[in-house]
């Protein structure tokens, strides 16, 4: 396989709400929730931000970071579980806003939290087969959590865009492998504002089974082991799951530390795992190897193996890092959060 990441961009809204603030409203024990989830605060979109505006900002940063000609993008896919329209693509707006139209193919993807990595795989195939020169894969969400539900403490907002190509790779994609079954651990029916989930059922038969199977499947296929990698990133619905799955697979806390952004960001769903990869690329050195495994409820996991090239140094400062996006947040109270999330109707 001769494809890789040519550029990347991230966007995180400035607003944050602390777990204590949400817990206060529902009379819950904040310390117990923080200890259980390993999440301290989450990002909140502004009232005029949604999955599309976040995807556009991330896509523009990806294009600017490496000075990409947007007219060379032959495919653009936006993965999300919070597309603003049920029918009408988010990707058409994104493509128009980054100047990639009209000579390209595009579509919206949905696979819970792994729609963005599915988009990466699609772009890989199209680039590797020379159907296109560059493909853009985006994971963007303004994820929903019902008032008082456990998800409300983590459902956050953010987006990540990767440009996939053959030339000028900053990270070569060595291989990918997916593990998928029909496991109904989490869903949102048409027209419903908030998702439902199977509680603890999302853990063992959902997250852990799929992440470990995909990760072990890729390492078996490649003949690699955890110690061959400098860094690892796993889907981050909270801080506890990726930390535990890393240990189960034989990765260390040091390997996952740079990409573990969820404690200060929350779960950005389709952007979650890809945000962790971006944070890792922000600090990675040439020849570093990165292992990544996403998870999408429903359920499936996509595992990837990357090797960073020396070109990373050239583009690193061309767009804001994840750390810069996380810096200087504006904290809001629950009432303002409810306005921002459309929980209050006029």
């Amino acid at each position: 396989m001769s494809v890789g990441i040519v550029s990347y961009g991230v966007y995180i809204p400035r607003y944050r709400i602390k777990v204590e603030e949400i817990a206060k409203v529902w009379g819950a024990n904040a310390n117990s929730i923080i200890d259980g989830l390993m999440v301290y605060e989450k990002s909140v979109p502004d009232m005029d931000e949604d999955t599309i505006t976040i995807a556009v900002e991330a896509a523009r940063y990806a294009i600017n970071r490496a000075g990409i000609n947007p007219q060379k993008i032959g495919a653009l896919y936006t993965g999300s579980e919070s597309h603003p329209y049920a029918v009408k693509p988010s990707s058409t707006v994104v493509a128009e806003a980054v100047g990639a139209t009209p000579d390209l193919t595009l579509a919206d993807f949905e696979f819970a939290c792994k729609a963005g990595t599915a988009a990466i795989q699609t772009c890989m195939g199209m680039v590797d087969s020379d159907m296109i020169e560059l493909g853009m894969a985006i994971g963007s969400d303004v994820s929903q959590g019902a008032p008082g539900d456990a998800l409300e403490y983590t459902a956050a907002a953010g987006g990540v865009a990767y440009i996939i190509g053959k030339k000028n790779q900053v990270a070569k994609i060595e291989s990918t492998y997916s593990f998928t079954t029909d496991t109904p651990d989490f869903w949102r029916r048409e027209g419903m504002p908030y998702p439902e989930h199977g509680g603890r059922f999302t853990g063992e038969p959902g997250y852990f089974k799929h992440v470990t199977s995909a990760a072990q499947g890729l390492m078996k296929r490649m003949g690699t082991k955890p110690s061959d990698y400098d860094y690892a990133v796993f889907h981050q619905p909270n801080g506890k799951f990726p930390t535990r799955v890393a240990k189960m697979l034989g990765f260390t806390n040091e390997q996952i530390k740079p990409g573990l952004v969820v404690p200060r960001l929350g779960n950005t769903y389709s952007g979650s795992c890809m945000m962790g990869l971006a944070a890792t690329l922000d600090i990675a050195k040439p020849e570093d190897r990165i292992f990544m495994t996403s998870f999408g409820s429903g359920a499936g996991s996509d595992a990837f193996s990357f090797e960073v090239t020396d070109k990373i140094e050239k583009i690193r400062n061309g767009a804001p890092s994840v750390e810069k996006m996380l810096a200087n947040p504006v904290y809001i109270n629950y009432a303002t959060y409810a306005r921002h999330k459309g929980k209050i109707k006029l």
Binding site: D48, E49, V56
Partner: peptide, 20 residues
């Protein structure tokens, strides 16, 4: 400039995007 929602035509209508 930043890319934002400019407005929308109710819950059933178009969403207008643009620059703020």
């Amino acid at each position: 400039s930043a890319f934002r929602k400019l407005g929308e035509e109710s819950d059933r209508g178009m969403i207008y995007y643009g620059t703020k």
